[in-house]
Amino acid sequence: MSITINGKAVDPPEDPRVSLLDLLRDHLALPGAKMGCNQGACGACTVLVDGERVLSCLTLAAQMEGRSVTTIEGIGSPDVLAPLQQAFVEHDGFQCGYCTPGQICSALAMVEELRRGVPSHVTGDVSSEAIAFSSEELRERMSGNLCRCGAYNGIIDAITATCRETAE
């Protein structure tokens, strides 16, 4: 069975040690997902698997057979940016740009989680069906994506500007 990556079928690697991140970066020339720690501590490698955000550094590519992977390259291109990508530029949601693809992939899935009503650590009443779209909820839910340049305010602004309506 193959892995679908940004809509294209790809054979899983022969060596089962290859992580999804290394498959993307070293084998498929898709370096948009970034390596910041290779140990699940920074979020730079975040990609979408069947629409859910996961860390590609801790995912063995072999586990992805039959799954559909979307990377930043599948979200938009420099000429045709997705609205959230455009908002990151407008709101200066990055400086060096290295954690950015992970932040964007993470945010896209995060908004879906919020819409679905998945509670978070800062949700007041976890039994409540609807979760309010607040800065605090966004910040908690994005906390798995580190940004050492400290573009956190701009990232939250970009997500808020783009995704508020979707979430509500």
Binding site: P31, G32, A33, M35, L81, Q85, Q86, V89, E90, P101
Partner: peptide, 27 residues
């Protein structure tokens, strides 16, 4: 003014040091 390299960075198209393709690479 928004960053001139912004579109490249948000689309994963800015090439960082470990991302330059070279033939016959060793790791």
């Amino acid at each position: 003014v928004s960053r001139l390299d912004g579109a490249l960075k948000v689309s994963g198209k800015a090439t960082f040091a470990a991302e330059f393709p070279v033939e016959a690479m060793t790791y």
